[in-house]
Amino acid sequence: MRTTTKIATVALGSAALLPFLGAGIAQAADGNTMATLRPVVLNGVKANGTAMVTVKGNRIDVTMAATGLLADSPHAAHIHFGADARHECPKASDDAKGDGTINTTDGGPAYGPIVVSLTKTGDTSPKSGLAVDRFDTAPGGKLSYERGSINVSSDVAQAITEGKAVVVVHGVDHNDNGKYDGATKSDLDPSLPTEATDPAICGALSAAPAGGMDTGAGGTSTPDNEGLLLLGGGLLLAAAGTGAFTARKARNRA
């Protein structure tokens, strides 16, 4: 009976501690992160851009700007993260089928699955990963995206601040005919051509530098020259005073 009570007490105690432990582990550091978006290897898109993700608890604010994308066509854009991914953009060696391009399946080992869909409106969960009617269409090839207060899990927030999340903008016009087409279907959705979902530009999010920079050794800071000038000037004034006193004394004697 006594033993049971003891066990119960310990169990209850541990249970009471759990939320605190959990909070400690799940607590993601807030912060500013940034990714420079560069052409995905093999896919030949001459575009580039910058993405900024600000993490505040379980909410993120996202801005993206890019140029050189296929104009007036939907560009699915996501934040990707997988615990077992490499947390980077694909390499040429990720082309598993050896077809000379990187498709969504090829990108998986590098950046993992979709964790946030960067839609302009509505749902932002992975379910909206191919909601082509809600992504930016890059008028004139230029993409400008801004969305605040996107809810994410603690794991995703933490992955972003720890530099493990990757921003990918999709949509590659391989045959340069100004639209998504071709016989090859998307790995994600066979109703779409692979051109619509192939990764175009990509960048790993990394935390902005913390604090300022130590850019000086103090060689011109000391001595404090203004202080020296003031002190020197003061002494010279005092000299004028004592000099006058001396002269007066001398005059009095004469």
Binding site: T220, N225, L228, G232, G234
Partner: peptide, 21 residues
């Protein structure tokens, strides 16, 4: 007076010849 002239002048020379902040 002499001491003040020497020290004061010296400090000013040093301040003016060393690199400023």
């Amino acid at each position: 007076t002499v001491v003040l002239l020497l020290v004061g002048g010296g400090l000013m020379v040093r301040a003016l010849t060393s690199p400023s902040s």
